[in-house]
């Protein structure tokens, strides 16, 4: 059985920049999308082609599904430019990761006196650098959406809760002394939410990385046991896992974006 490294192996370097096999895979995915975009765009001038019809069906389906989460087509169209390409990027990366040759064609290299097999290509999502970068960008985008769609003050108070202290004197004047207990608790809940944002990043990145990497290990193990027929059901499983992981990641981002686009009070009212 070939050793499958938990991190993406370096293939070559450009000055100080090390190009890993996962990065090469990501470049192939990007190239694939560029080609697809050109093909679809060129087909626009002609009568609706099958590919264009498929893309329209996919987009309409995705937007309708997005509507079921956001509850508003306008909002869905605001988030779709970010979420939909992420879904496509993860999906294609995952499916490209199970293509023949990915993870199996490589070279042998001496490392610490031990000969190891280094594949030229590796699923982009089986590199934590990729998933963590995606998760950081996704979580940051939810905060940008929160600031732009609510207001900087409202978004800040979602976590820091300065308004909670400002409303204490007003409530005391109204003889509502429960505010002295409730608002400090709310303030600490806000602080926990800050930690929650880091947890979001970690869970998004590790879930995707873990599932895809585990799939690679599983396929590698099966292929090393018996190269013919045995990996087929697992390959089909990986096709499904690849889709599900892309779907989960993008749906979670959409949900986070939707939550952040509502003010804290609106969100609490919606859940009440």
């Amino acid at each position: 059985m070939t050793d499958i490294s938990i991190f993406a192996e370096p293939i070559f370097s450009i000055k100080n920049f090390i190009v890993s096999n996962a990065l090469i895979n990501a470049w192939i995915v990007v190239l694939g999308f560029i080609v697809l975009a050109i093909v679809v765009r060129l087909g626009f001038s002609k009568k609706s082609s099958k590919l264009q019809n498929f893309m329209e069906w996919f987009l309409e389906g995705a937007l309708s599904f997005g509507d079921s989460i956001t509850g508003d087509r306008e909002k869905t169209l605001k988030f779709a430019p970010f979420v939909l390409p992420i879904f496509c990027f993860i999906l294609l990366s995952n499916w490209l990761g199970i293509m023949p040759g990915v993870g199996s064609i490589g070279f042998l290299a001496e490392h610490s006196g031990k000969t190891t097999f280094i594949p030229y290509l590796r699923s982009a999502m089986s590199d934590l650098n990729m998933t963590l970068a995606l998760a950081i960008v996704a979580v940051l985008s939810t905060h940008i959406a929160g600031v732009l769609l609510t207001s900087p003050w409202k978004h800040l108070n979602r976590f820091v809760g300065l308004n909670l202290f400002l409303e204490i004197p007003k409530k005391i004047k109204q003889r509502d002394f429960s505010i002295l207990i409730v608002n400090p608790i709310k303030f600490f809940v806000g602080i926990i939410e800050i930690a929650g944002e880091f947890a979001k990043t970690a869970s998004l990145s590790l879930r995707l990385f873990g599932n895809v990497f585990a799939g690679e290990v599983l396929l590698g193990a099966m292929a090393s046991m018996f190269a013919f027929f045995l990996p087929v059901p697992f390959l089909l499983l990986e096709v499904l896992v690849g889709f599900i992981q892309a779907f989960i990641f993008s749906v979670l981002i959409l949900v986070f974006l939707n939550i952040m686009s509502e003010s804290h009070e609106e969100h609490e009212e919606a859940h009440a």
Binding site: L36, R41, L84
Partner: peptide, 16 residues
């Protein structure tokens, strides 16, 4: 890479 994908997919394919 993600930025390129977002640009290519949204502005060239999905938006039109």
């Amino acid at each position: 890479n993600l930025g390129i994908v977002v640009f290519v997919l949204w502005f060239i394919v999905f938006k039109p």
